[in-house]
Design a binder for these strands. Structure first.
Lengths: 262, 262
DNA sequence: TAAGATTTGTTCGTATGTATC
DNA sequence: GGATACATACGAACAAATCTT
């Protein structure tokens, strides 16, 4: 189970010609990463302090600090001041991972149909896996979310709020996924859609029938999850996805985000 | 189509209590991101130089440099020295995005079955979308990949090489995807599996029958893609995925990677 | 509460490296 | 080659945060 430190043979799927000149801080950052992996350091484990690194690498304070910023920006370390402070290994948070990935897609032009194609593939499967596995606490939480909006929205503002709530509901389901990769992708999509509904006006005008159907879906879904009815849960989610997709008039979109920060 | 600059109301799916103290460099980095998005700057567009930023933000050189490192680490800018140099907006590369996301999953314990669950959902769909849309050049490339190993592997080393080649084949398909989100996820999985097959010995012992089936799958798949036979392409991929999953004895794994760097 | 110790955070001045003209 | 415009790196000093006593 231990990681054998990897040799020079770097495995690249896309054979990148990478051999550029790397600045001192980047080199130092890379060495620290290596150092961490070699020793199989874990979440709270501490790194040497600034002074030690300055001595270790024979560079100036500023260079070490820049290296630390690089690692920090990637979510790999956290740093505290004061006695007993210093830098320590820090698990990359889901939020940060979502942000960093969001930066990548900032430059792409994802369409809503792209996202819904994936949602239709993944989310029904997600709830099928989840059926019968959730604890009472999670079920209660989901139920309360499902009942959160007892009345149809009266204003566009309320409609928007309900739409966001629905995405939070889906994100909560994603968090419960056993398959963390699947959960992450679904969370990521929820986040993108959430941003879009805020910055654009991508939600429909208030509509009683839509509200009723969405609400029913959520309530029925929680019920199916509780009773462990896999295929019913899958069907409900599929139906919900199809409805949601229709609701959002299919239009090109840009991920308009201020480079998601954290 | 223009982005209206977003106000303070930050939309967070998971209502993070975020209100921590942010260090100067991070603040500066955030402001620069904001600045870039406000002006809707694009890939090559230049940022002010160090001196200008020092004046602009009223901070020292070191602080500005740390801020730039943060942005650089996230792939958002590139920096050159010399006259006409300075920092410029830089599209986040797919490689870098994969690395950054890899850091997140470094701390998770993905199982092979997690990955194959997703592969079975996504890759058949991918090739169904691709059928009939590929240009001759891409088809030729795929065909040559499919014929790359005319003989079954004689040694574990060859077997490993063939396995990696197969993943490159899948990554190439992913690159051709219209749906960039789907393509990215598939590429990411191929990358993870590729790393694993290199560092662990996760490939089966040389086996003529397996080799023959895998090869047939690839060749048939390219044929179906060329002829635009959507459902046949889907079926072939599905069958291939199931075979591949069986081949890898399902075992827990850790993403053992030196914090994928670029 | 206050003082002191420890460790990161920030600044400034200076010098060096690098690419363009 | 030399001048110019930039980033890169160093070192010393001081500021701020936080823990301990």
């Amino acid at each position: 189970m231990k990681n054998n430190a990897a040799q020079s043979s770097e495995p690249k799927i896309t054979d990148a010609p990478r051999a550029q000149k790397r600045s001192r801080p980047v080199q130092v950052a890379d060495q620290i990463k290596h150092w961490v992996v070699e020793r199989d350091l874990r979440k709270g484990d501490k790194l040497p302090n600034e002074a030690a690194m300055i001595a270790q690498f024979g560079v100036s304070k500023g260079t070490v600090r820049e290296a630390m910023r690089i690692l920090e920006a990637q979510g790999l370390i956290v740093t505290k001041t004061g006695p007993g402070g210093g830098s320590a290994v820090g698990e990359v948070s889901k939020e940060r991972a979502i942000s960093l990935l969001g930066n990548y897609f900032y430059f792409k032009n994802l369409s809503l149909s792209d996202i819904y194609q994936l949602r239709k593939l993944l989310e029904p499967e997600l709830v099928a896996n989840l059926a019968g596995t959730l604890d009472e606490e999670t079920l209660t939480e989901l139920r309360s979310m499902a009942h959160q909006h007892p009345e149809p929205a009266k204003t566009p503002e309320e409609e928007k709020q309900q739409h966001i709530s629905s995405l939070v509901f889906h994100a909560r389901l994603a968090d419960a996924a056993e398959n963390e990769l699947m959960g992450f992708v679904i969370s990521f999509m929820a986040r993108i859609l959430s941003d879009l509904t805020v910055y654009h006006r991508l939600y429909a005008a208030p509509n009683k029938e839509l509200w009723e159907r969405g609400r029913r879906h959520q309530i029925d879904l929680v019920d199916a999850l509780e009773k462990g009815e896999r295929s019913r849960a899958r069907d409900i989610m599929m139906s919900h996805m199809e409805g949601a997709e229709r609701m959002m008039n299919v239009q090109e979109m840009r991920i308009t985000r201020q480079f998601m920060t954290e």
